[in-house]
Design a protein around this nucleic acid. Structure first.
Length: 357
DNA sequence: TATCCACCGGAATTTATGGAAG
DNA sequence: CTTCCATAAATTCCGGTGGATA
């Protein structure tokens, strides 16, 4: 069934960007000065997750098929401070100069300025929470450096960045990506089916179905197709069935949640498992049971210690952000927690009942 | 009605961690 | 080994909200 798993890899760049013609030429125009050795210009790329923001930037700047001469670094900025950002920009620059964690943040602009002669582009990916204004302040004295910022919500991003920088990312310099239509996404999936699957494994009609059930999110479409093919393979089907597609989508979703949970530290797991042990759990009950089991859940050989209520709330926010739990608000300010998919278990072995019960 | 309590979440403050240089 | 610097995570403090109780 699957002849080339490579085709479905997250980091794989397509040979051409279908249905992104205007966006591609828009970014090319912005990059023009940089390519011809002049001071580079900034850009902002926004849109929901999984519709190709990173792919668009990489397609033009980090593409083995058509390399550009412009020095570029790709920074996954999620949760970074502006010091981190500058340090990574310095360390990734081809000049070879490196800088360590303890270097005063205030010294970094000077160091960067001394090492760049030619245009240097920073792709700041997942920039939703980074303090852009601070970073732009620090880059202000280095005209050879420009940033390609990738974020989800344009309004959010503009609200956070100081007004004196906004014009550099607005108008022609702002590229908005939207979800694909079902048929557009089918067009995108088609070459992957052609090169990654046996011929005849999936019909055009089914690709459109996938486009519909993933609501035009390309990343989810590709993973759904991959899982549908895997499932069809396991079931010895000659071709992918409609049922395989439904199951494939569910499997793809589970996979994301599992990897989300794995990526979280121990505290989150304790809270998650407490909620998972019930259908629904009220906030007061959740805190009570946490306090009841904390002695055992945080045994002596564990480096972590039980955390305060306030810190628990932060963990719960994170669990919800990762689509692992949800809650409904009560009129009395409390909440009713529940897990989204109770079949997903923590890999930690967490004792949920105090001894003697 | 006035007071108390539990909860949420923003902000300020403290604590823990880790790499590098002296 | 100690000191320095930056940073993440946790605690402390607090104002706002709304139900329960006297």
């Amino acid at each position: 069934m699957i002849t080339d798993p490579e085709v479905f890899h997250e980091t794989r760049l397509p040979r051409e960007l279908l249905h992104r013609d205007s966006e591609t030429s828009q970014l090319s125009r912005i990059l023009k000065p940089a390519v011809s050795g002049h001071y580079p210009e900034d850009a902002l790329i926004t849109g929901p997750s999984g519709v190709g923001k990173t792919v668009l930037a990489r397609f033009l700047l980090d593409n083995p098929q058509q390399p550009t001469a412009v020095a570029t670094t790709h920074i996954r900025a999620l949760g970074m401070t502006c010091g981190d950002l500058l340090r990574e920009a310095i360390n990734d620059h081809p000049s070879g100069t490196t800088v360590h964690r303890g270097t005063p943040t205030a010294d970094l602009p000077q160091i960067l300025q001394e090492l760049v002669d030619d245009p240097y582009l920073l792709i700041i990916d997942e920039a939703d929470d980074v303090p852009e204004t601070d970073a732009l302040d620090m880059l202000a004295g280095v005209p050879e450096v420009a940033t390609i910022v990738i974020a989800h919500d344009a309004d959010d991003w503009f609200a956070r960045v100081d007004s004196r920088y906004r014009s550099r990312f607005d108008g022609d310099h702002h590229i908005r990506l939207t979800r694909y239509t079902a048929t557009e996404l089918a067009d995108i999936l088609e070459p992957r089916a052609e090169f990654g699957l046996e011929s005849g494994a999936v019909s055009r009609e089914q690709l459109v179905t996938i486009g519909n059930i993933v609501a035009g999110v390309a990343r989810r479409g590709i993973q759904t197709l991959r899982w549908a093919a895997k499932i069809a393979e396991n079931q010895d089907h000659d071709a992918i069935t409609d049922r395989d597609i439904t199951d494939g989508r569910a499997r793809a979703q589970t996979e994301i949640r599992e990897s989300n949970l794995r990526s979280l530290p121990y505290h989150h797991h304790v809270l998650y498992e407490l909620i998972r042990a019930h259908d629904t759990l009220e906030s007061s009950k959740l805190h009570d049971s946490y306090e009841a089991i904390q002695e055992h859940a945080y045994a002596k050989n564990r480096p972590q210690h039980p955390i305060s209520r306030r810190a628990r709330r932060t963990k719960l926010d994170k669990l919800r952000e990762y689509d692992l739990i949800d809650w409904t608000e009560h009129e009395d300010n409390s909440r009713m927690y529940r897990v989204i998919d109770a079949s997903i278990a923590s890999e930690f072995d967490i004792p949920l009942t105090p001894l003697g019960r």
